[in-house]
Design a protein around this nucleic acid. Structure first.
Lengths: 209, 209
DNA sequence: ACATTTTTTGACCAAATGGACAGAAAAACG
DNA sequence: CGTTTTTCTGTCCATTTGGTCAAAAAATGT
């Protein structure tokens, strides 16, 4: 029998992990189409059939990567709490998303490419889990807005705006670097955090009467 | 001689145009790697060698598409005028960019994919023309900010934010639709325009004393 | 130690694909 | 018209690439 068996052995966990890490490197740069089994095998320091042995196909690796990442990806939004201070909650969410762009740029690009190309593999997940979560949090934000604890805002579009702006720093880093190339990575993300904090604060802080 | 001749004939203009339009369809969906000459030829209703006859290679089509689009893509930013009312200028820019996402989603995706994959073909352009333009307009915005005609803001990051948010509606339309699927395209973009106008207005309108 | 299962690889294959080429068809030109 | 140039296509080819397979090597179980 092969790795289909019930309990994955120590070696199976190890090798599959190695492959997934190597594949993330390759897929995030070349995309699904551009990536080759040979490149992945090379990056993982294995032979090509070995990679196939553990995952069956290139697609399977890609799909598993996406699925295992989705949860991590959504966790900052999940953590937005109805109990907290509205502005704080949003600003914390923005900062966490920005930090994910800094610390997990490959993952960000992986998702971006997937969605950009029509989300052929994550369609159901997006229409299901993601939508549910977004709708739930949108309702919370709407509530805050209605109570006057947050400036009036369309919650769904607000969430889109947060995603777009924060992920921009990972997905389009080449462009960002071309324009702010004189800054170190640290300086860049620090200035981005400042900007985003100020920006969202201004846009969302409720007007006092 | 072939189409390298000095003056492109009527047929050359026609066919090259046809190919470019077909290629945009294919590239924006499948990306450079995923697109095939056969698909492009098919979409253009031609034979494969015919496409090669006019462009020489798949890459050449892709590159020409990108280059011919860059100017159009930047024109809204170019039109931001130092003479106008600051808030007006910015909000108009935001709206124009959003409309481009609505009216030219394929072009948006084409650029997004290119940048996402490291801009191997547009690198110089981005580091050159684009950076020059952005720096120029950033200086204008900074001036407005300093004069108190606009809320204090980092102009480069502001431009990134505008790009990110507006292009999000084209590049990640699958995700947007999955979440706001109940809206018609018109309703969606109308609500987005409302949101963005309000949002940037709040964030950028200078505080009155 | 022996049998069984799992892991690993070199060699190979079929399909897809970018593009070359020779020549046919059509247009342009005199 | 006839000649020349441009346009167009069927056929073919070399390369790349995802994946198979048989068998070797290593691990595991008893």
């Amino acid at each position: 029998m092969n790795q289909q068996a019930r309990k994955p052995t120590r070696i199976q966990k190890e090798k599959r992990g190695l492959i997934l890490r190597a594949a993330l490197d390759v897929f995030s740069v070349d995309g699904l189409r551009g990536a080759t089994l040979a490149k992945i095998a090379d990056a993982a320091d294995m032979s090509k059939p070995h990679v196939v042995y553990y995952f069956g196909s290139k697609d399977a690796i890609y799909t598993e990567l996406l699925e295992s990442l989705l949860e991590t990806w959504l966790s900052p939004l999940r953590d937005v709490s109805p109990e907290g201070d509205p502005l704080d909650e949003i600003l914390t969410y923005v900062r966490r998303k920005l930090r994910m762009s800094r610390d997990m740029p490959r993952e960000s690009k992986l998702f971006a490419t997937e969605i950009l190309h029509g989300a052929p593999r994550t369609g159901p997940q997006i229409a299901g889990d993601l939508k549910t979560l977004v709708d739930e949090k949108a309702a919370v934000i709407k509530g805050w807005s209605n109570e006057g604890r947050l400036a009036p805002v369309d919650p769904h579009h607000l969430i889109f705006s947060i995603w777009a702006i924060t992920q921009h720093y990972a997905d389009f880093d080449v462009q960002v670097r071309a324009i702010l190339g004189h800054l170190s990575e640290d300086a860049l993300f620090e200035s981005a955090e400042h900007h985003l904090t100020d920006f969202f604060d201004r846009a969302l802080r409720p007007t006092v009467f």
